[in-house]
């Protein structure tokens, strides 16, 4: 998927939420971001997501028929959407976004979505 398609996907995925829910989501980002900034990195375990990226020359297409944990495509899409909302939050506050801001986004993402069992149902305020 190219960058433009991904941008459109991120934006259109916002349609999963009502404006009121997005407001709550954005307010929640601020709250969680403040919480994450208050953590003592030297002593606390910090939950994060890490993306797996194969940049090897021997890159092979994953075997789709492999047995394992079924993918939750809707949850994955929710993560993409959440990043889009966070990104727009950061852009609204600062012209320059640095690596630490991206790290903060992933920390907030983890605070919200680390455990899928805690996920709100779509259509419910987050």
């Amino acid at each position: 998927m190219n960058e433009e398609n991904l941008r459109m996907l991120g934006q259109s995925a916002r349609a999963l939420f009502t404006p009121e829910q997005l407001d709550l989501f954005e307010a929640s980002f601020e709250k969680q971001a403040a919480y994450c900034r208050s953590k003592i990195y030297n002593e606390e375990g910090i939950p994060m997501f890490l993306v797996l990226e194969d940049i090897s020359n021997s890159k092979v297409e994953p075997k789709a028929d492999s047995a394992g944990l079924p993918r939750d495509a809707l949850f994955d899409l929710l993560l993409v959407t959440a990043i889009e909302v966070y990104k727009q939050q950061l852009e609204a506050k600062s012209e320059t976004i640095e690596a630490k801001d991206i790290g903060l986004m992933l920390e907030v993402l983890a605070e919200h979505f680390f455990v899928t069992a805690q996920l709100p149902k779509l259509g419910e305020p987050v």
Binding site: E44, G45, I46, P47, M48, L52, D72, L79
Partner: peptide
């Protein structure tokens, strides 16, 4: 950010806890 979204969309991610 887009490369991260691409990874999430494909389900290519793991969870970690970072300790010092």
């Amino acid at each position: 950010v887009r490369s991260l979204q691409t990874g999430f969309l494909k389900g290519n991610y793991v969870r970690v806890i970072n300790y010092h």
